[in-house]
Simulated scan of single mutants.
Amino acid sequence: MRSKINIILVLFIIISILTSCVKLKPTPDISSINSSSSKEQSSSEASSSEVSSSSSEVSSQTSSSKPDAASSKNQQTNSTKQHTSSKSSTDFSWDKGGNYSGSINIHVTSSPKTTVLSDANAMIDISNVSEGYITASYTGSAKRLKLQVKKDGKTYNYDLNNQGGEETFPLQLGNGDYEFRIMENVTGTQYIQLFSGTASVSLNNSFSPFLYPNQYSNYNASSNAVKKSFDLCMNASNDLDKVKSVYNYIITNVKYDYPKASSVQSGYLPNVDNTLATKKGICFDYAALMAAMLRAQNIPTKLVVGDVAPNGVRHAWNDVYIKGRGWITVGIQSDGSQWKRLDATFSSSNQADISNFINNSSNYTTLRIY
């Protein structure tokens, strides 16, 4: 009887969080835009189109999303043994670090403009495509702008500010030929193309797109989130200790912001320092903060947007990669050879049985990776 009550309680908590998370949707997809004009998809249309356009991307980039049967079985066995929760720091051993006073060196983006795609108003700096990112800007428009990144039939769409400020965007689709398009909103959901260009990308390291800041997880060496990551990890002897310290700090200190979840608008971008300062946020904020803090520690980390059971609503979480090392953290075990999921939003809800939900990969469907 107690087991049934626990299961019902866990499902209630998950449904409550996901119901709030449903409004967290990155800028609606506009993959149907043609070279002259098109309609921006509605939120519901974006959801279905993303599933079809991302299926091959998911299988090639996120092995943890669909693990093999042996991996699933091992995860189930380990979760039954652990049942670890975030109720207190004593439930899971992790080092809280101290006050780091050394130098801070992280991967930072730059825009040297040695190789650019441009016209009188548009600028796409492709000087650092080998490092897994571009920067883009546009001047001369007071309307809503979009940057579209396309490769091999897959499309990522981003809001682009109309003030001429440069923003950073990842090349998460790997090596190959990319097309970049800057689009302007004409009226309603109608867009026209203002500029386009192409570039051939050969990454120096396949993990590079997940080691740098970008529009969704934006930070620099002076960010408080970066400094906090160095505080937390100052005593760590390896990357596994760093992941544990950052992950457990977030799930024990950041609370879910239900009022924000009920009012957040399409196009919302996280502010990692604000999440750290207020100690509250929605799932997008959790995932962006996690990505910033772990990338600052040179740990490849994906910010993932997708659908989560039981109702298939939109959610955000992280995949973290540590090559050749086994590790266990809050109900998730890795054999060290593939990406593994960290869902800080659910783990922060203080329920031991939620680790079983996170461990079940069938509950998560990856749509977009940043």
Rank of each mutant, 00 (worst) to 15 (best):
S64A: 14
S64H: 09
S65D: 08
S65L: 03
S65G: 03
K66I: 13
K66S: 13
K66N: 15
P67V: 05
P67C: 02
D68H: 05
D68P: 04
D68R: 03
A69L: 11
A69H: 08
A69E: 04
A69K: 09
A69R: 06
A69S: 11
A70M: 15
A70T: 11
A70Y: 13
A70H: 10
A70D: 11
A70E: 11
S71K: 03
S71L: 03
S71T: 08
S71V: 00
S71G: 00
S72M: 05
S72C: 06
S72P: 01
K73D: 06
K73H: 09
K73G: 05
K73R: 08
K73S: 12
N74M: 02
N74D: 01
N74I: 02
Q75I: 01
Q75N: 02
Q75R: 02
Q76V: 00
Q76F: 02
Q76K: 03
N78F: 03
N78R: 01
N78L: 05
N78M: 04
S79D: 04
S79C: 02
S79I: 01
S79M: 04
T80G: 08
T80V: 06
T80L: 09
K81C: 04
K81T: 09
K81M: 05
K81H: 08
Q82D: 15
Q82I: 07
Q82R: 14
Q82F: 14
Q82H: 15
H83V: 11
H83A: 15
H83C: 10
H83I: 13
T84W: 10
T84Y: 14
T84V: 12
T84E: 12
S85P: 06
S85W: 05
S86G: 12
K87R: 15
K87W: 12
K87N: 15
K87V: 15
K87C: 14
K87A: 13
S88G: 13
S88V: 07
S89I: 15
S89A: 13
T90A: 13
T90C: 05
T90Q: 13
D91V: 06
D91M: 09
D91S: 13
D91T: 10
D91A: 07
F92C: 08
F92K: 03
F92T: 07
F92G: 02
F92D: 02
F92R: 06
S93N: 15
S93W: 11
S93Q: 10
S93D: 12
S93F: 11
W94T: 03
W94E: 00
D95N: 14
D95Y: 04
D95S: 10
D95Q: 07
